[in-house]
Design a protein around this nucleic acid. Structure first.
Length: 315
DNA sequence: CTCATTTGACCTCC
DNA sequence: GGAGGTCAAATGAG
């Protein structure tokens, strides 16, 4: 961020006040852009009108720009804090480095559990009624029963953790049943070149008219690289036996494409059957931590993306 | 055969 | 000490 309206002394609050002001300004800009878009829509320019679709798209891009800037800014200040925390931890580790036992010197092979809790770095949470492809390739590496939670938490890391050193990971947990609600917590940014690799069978993308109800801001945390299918299994409920396979498979939708997903009826995840054919209502709640600026409803989507044929029956 | 998932053990943090 | 996060052997799917 270049020379913006930072009116702070370099010594102290420079770190806090500067970025916060910039964030405020960006938020304002984003709201204005959003208002502009609504105005366009109310004036009958809802994108389906052909000739004005480009205008609508431009506004969307504008919003996107604000959003990205905001999240970058947050990332920057977060990593600042984090690095401080880490250096403190490193210092502590050095201090207690008595006789070469910094981390209990795990046997060269058995390094289980030697991890760092990475809560405050790059984390954000998203809650959706369905689980859909999010544009990245994930590999499940664990599942854990969580205290007082009805459903286990699933742990995923980027498939490219080892070949590209990508440290992104996420946790997925079903947090509600009746209208199903899933919480996905993303940790870390992707550094991989996540080239889209559709499943060996086919896939297709359905682009439709947006028909957005109204309002709102788009939060996009992903990158625009590519989309890759992901299939995730399980979410075995432990204990309370709600219908057997209702938790087992689900899809993720690319947040980077800002999507609602229309899944083909016959390929619907089981848990959504019965209600509305798995169409992701454009009301996914995105929130960001730390610095939870806004929680917004996603309504305005440029495309409805449908994924097919990567459904697999577990049993 | 290769790669992904499952699952219990292990480890760290609170 | 308990809860949560990660590892890795076993197992399964393609």
């Amino acid at each position: 961020m270049a020379s913006s309206s930072c009116v702070v002394t370099e010594s102290e609050s420079h770190r806090l006040a500067g970025p916060e002001r910039v964030i405020t300004e960006l938020n304002r800009g984003r709201e204005i852009a959003d208002r502009l878009r609504r105005m366009l829509r109310e004036a009958g320019f809802d994108g389906s009108a052909g000739s004005v679709a480009p205008a609508q798209r431009l506004v969307s891009q504008l919003l996107d720009t604000f959003t990205h800037s905001l999240s970058m800014l947050r990332d920057a200040s977060d990593s600042d804090e984090v690095s401080q925390v880490h250096s403190a931890a490193a210092a502590a580790a050095l201090k207690s480095e008595d006789s070469g036992e910094s981390c209990k010197t795990p046997a060269p092979k058995d390094r289980r559990g030697c991890y760092k809790r990475k809560r405050n770095s790059d984390t954000w949470t998203k809650e959706t009624p369905n689980l859909l492809e999010d544009g990245y390739a994930w590999r499940k590496y664990g599942q854990k029963v969580i205290l007082n939670a009805k459903h286990p938490r699933n742990y995923f890391r980027c498939t490219h953790k080892f070949d590209q050193g990508c440290h992104a990971s996420k946790q997925v947990q079903k947090v509600q049943d009746s209208p199903p609600l899933f919480r996905t917590t993303y940790l870390g940014q992707h550094t991989c070149k996540n080239l889209f690799k559709p499943p060996h069978h086919h896939h297709h993308l359905i682009i439709q008219d947006p028909t957005p109800p109204d309002s709102s801001i788009i939060w996009s945390f992903g990158r625009r690289d590519s989309v890759k299918h992901e299939q995730q299994l399980n979410e075995d409920d432990d204990g309370d036996g709600e219908d057997d396979n209702s938790d087992r498979d689900y899809y993720m939708v690319p947040d980077d494409v800002l999507t609602t997903a229309a899944l083909d009826g016959e390929h619907l995840p089981p848990f959504s059957s019965g209600s509305d054919h798995g169409e992701v209502m454009s009301s996914d709640v995105y929130s960001c931590s730390p610095s939870p600026t806004t929680t917004t409803n996603i309504h305005d989507l440029d495309a409805i993306v449908g994924y097919e044929d990567f459904w697999k029956n577990l049993n």
